[in-house]
């Protein structure tokens, strides 16, 4: 049987509507799935101690904001963490940009070799460096000092950050350098006056990634920091919550802390969404 054009149009429209409904139902399912950890921790952080101990329930029957007072116990750890995060968050992108500049813009002797050596460090597992680095830091008296957590921030910021920066700098037209050179500028003037301001977005991207990454890091502090007053947030979390038994009945406070430590990454991501997505897009050009 032949369909009249009118029928065909109606069928196509109906198919379109069905597809749209399917898409929204699936999207709704995805949203429920991905929001689960948020709704779960928020609810649990507002439960009373009795509700927590009476078996698992999803919705909280009360709004115990007083649970959040537990944050007060961690003020010292928060301070330590903020110091480490601030120093790394500034100097990692700052030195990464500085060191990446010649690899992106200057022709020089041994460029390829330098690039290859830097990139080869990506393959090197941190575990290989674990023991000798600890011994080295101990020799310099850096163990159990907060400095052990930011001494590494001044040396180029890691191969992957440098690689990303090189990609970004290459996308800026070369004519800018040439024009500046004709005006008599040297490479340092070109870098600080022209390149650095143009790299604002990549600077911010690296900075925020570092801040989010180190905010709750515990692997580095675990090896180097031993006295409780030096503990970072991540390390304090590790010692307080790794043992199931000790904190079992205080899950509501644990969840309040989980909510608290999620706030900073969320604020940073949503404030600088443009730079964050842009940075990821830059990575996708590889």
């Amino acid at each position: 049987m032949l369909l009249s054009p009118n029928d065909a149009g109606r069928a196509a429209r109906r198919k379109h509507t069905v597809m749209l409904i399917v898409k929204y139902v699936l999207s709704a399912f995805l949203c429920v799935f991905f929001l689960f950890p948020y709704v779960y921790m928020l609810n649990k952080s507002l439960m009373t101690m009795t509700q927590v101990s009476e078996g698992a329930t999803f919705w909280s029957s009360s709004l115990e904001f007083v649970n959040y007072a537990v944050v007060g116990k961690y003020l010292r750890n928060i301070g330590n963490t903020l110091l480490i995060v601030a120093i790394n968050g500034f100097f990692v992108p700052f030195t990464a940009l500085f060191c990446a500049f010649p690899l992106a813009r200057i022709k020089f002797i041994g460029k390829k070799a330098v690039f290859c050596i830097i990139m080869a460090t990506v393959m090197l597992p941190d575990a290989v460096l674990m023991v000798p680095k600890y011994i080295l830091f101990r020799t310099f008296g850096l163990t159990d000092k907060l400095a052990s957590q930011f001494i590494g921030a001044f040396w180029g910021g890691g191969a992957l950050n440098m690689f990303l920066t090189i990609q970004f700098m290459r996308s800026i037209p070369k004519e800018i350098d040439n024009a500046a050179k004709i005006d008599g500028a040297n490479w340092f003037q070109i870098y600080f006056r022209i390149m650095l301001p143009l790299c604002y977005n990549i600077f911010l991207f690296i900075c925020i990634n570092i801040v989010i990454g180190l905010w709750m890091d515990f692997q580095g502090p675990l090896i180097y920091l031993t006295s409780p007053e030096k503990f970072t947030m991540g390390l304090a979390f590790y010692y307080d919550f790794n043992n199931n038994t000790a904190f079992a009945e205080k899950t509501h406070e644990m969840m309040a802390m989980c909510v608290f430590v999620t706030i900073l990454p969320m604020i940073l991501f949503f404030t600088f969404q443009k730079q964050m997505i842009g940075g990821i897009q830059l990575g996708s050009l590889k």
């Binding site: 948020y38 590790y238 802390m257 430590v261």
Partner: peptide, 12 residues
């Protein structure tokens, strides 16, 4: 919304 769980620190 799908990206949001990535913002919860790994430890948490």
């Amino acid at each position: 919304l799908c990206y949001m769980p990535c913002l919860i620190p790994g430890l948490a």
